[in-house]
């Protein structure tokens, strides 16, 4: 049980390699953005991490529906694991977005449409994790979690609509885009590297986090059978 499986180690290693390359390309090789200067380099982390977070929450959504259908706790293990990792990536997106905002807009926080949406996403899935922590028995936690995950995911497009209308009706929406509408081809490489790296890192975290959930299930089982005998 000490070290992860071979798959996990390969995933982790590949993620590390890709991220190191992406980091080097993004910080050293690629020239600074013509308009934004060096600050634009934050995008190489910010954009891939929000995409990874959305992938994580999509995984939560799918496994939650499947769990309610098949009632296999392994599906629920994937859902709760993916949600936890998604929250980490959403947190990184929020932090890097704020840090990018300070030199760009002069403030750490502004109710920019995308930042606002990310913050809403963050609160929904932190709520999901809290709900599961507060449920008294594991099967109830799994069912409640699955229901909340489905509601939360259906909420995303509505949130998008509402927040975009809200922001664009008051001021032209300032959208975080890597280097504006025209992404230079040199910038695509570090971006792609980090995309692949973070998605692999997500997969690695997921495999390991699901393993933790399996150990916990197993522990609960052993406790139960022992309780019955004793």
């Amino acid at each position: 049980m000490g070290r992860g499986s071979l798959v996990a180690r390969i995933l982790g290693g590949a993620a590390g390699l890709l991220l190191a390359t992406g980091l080097y390309l993004g910080l050293v090789v690629v020239p600074p953005d013509a308009v934004q200067g060096d600050v634009q380099r934050i995008m190489y982390v910010h954009v891939p991490s929000i995409v990874t977070a959305y992938i994580a929450f999509f995984v939560v959504f799918c496994t939650s529906i499947l769990y309610l259908w098949k009632r296999d706790l392994r599906l629920d293990a994937v859902a709760v694991s993916s949600a936890e990792i998604g929250v980490v990536f959403t947190g990184i997106t929020l932090a890097t977005g704020m840090i990018w905002g300070k030199p760009t807009w002069g403030v750490w926080w502004t109710w920019d449409a995308r930042l606002t949406l990310t913050a809403i996403l963050f609160t929904i899935y932190v709520g999901y994790l809290m709900l599961r922590a507060f449920a008294e028995e594991p099967l109830a936690a799994a069912r409640y979690g699955a229901v909340l995950a489905i509601l939360g995911f259906l909420d995303i497009p509505l949130n998008h609509l509402a927040v975009y209308w809200w922001r664009t009706l008051h001021q032209p929406s300032s959208i975080l885009r890597p280097g504006g509408p025209s992404v230079a081809s040199a910038m695509l490489l570090p971006l792609a590297m980090n995309f692949a790296g973070l998605i692999l890192l997500f997969a690695y975290f997921l495999v390991e986090r699901v393993r933790l959930e399996r150990i916990r299930h197993r522990t609960a089982e052993v406790r139960l059978t022992r309780g019955r005998r004793g």
């Binding site: 934050i42 947190g91 975290f205």
Partner: peptide
């Protein structure tokens, strides 16, 4: 570069921190 360092540093701390936390729980 200060902002870039801060952003990359925070992201790194979050990811490595999560990995250490996960391994510890495992």
């Amino acid at each position: 570069w200060g902002f870039v360092g801060l952003a990359y540093g925070l992201a790194l701390v979050a990811l490595v921190g999560y990995l250490v936390f996960l391994k510890g729980r495992l």
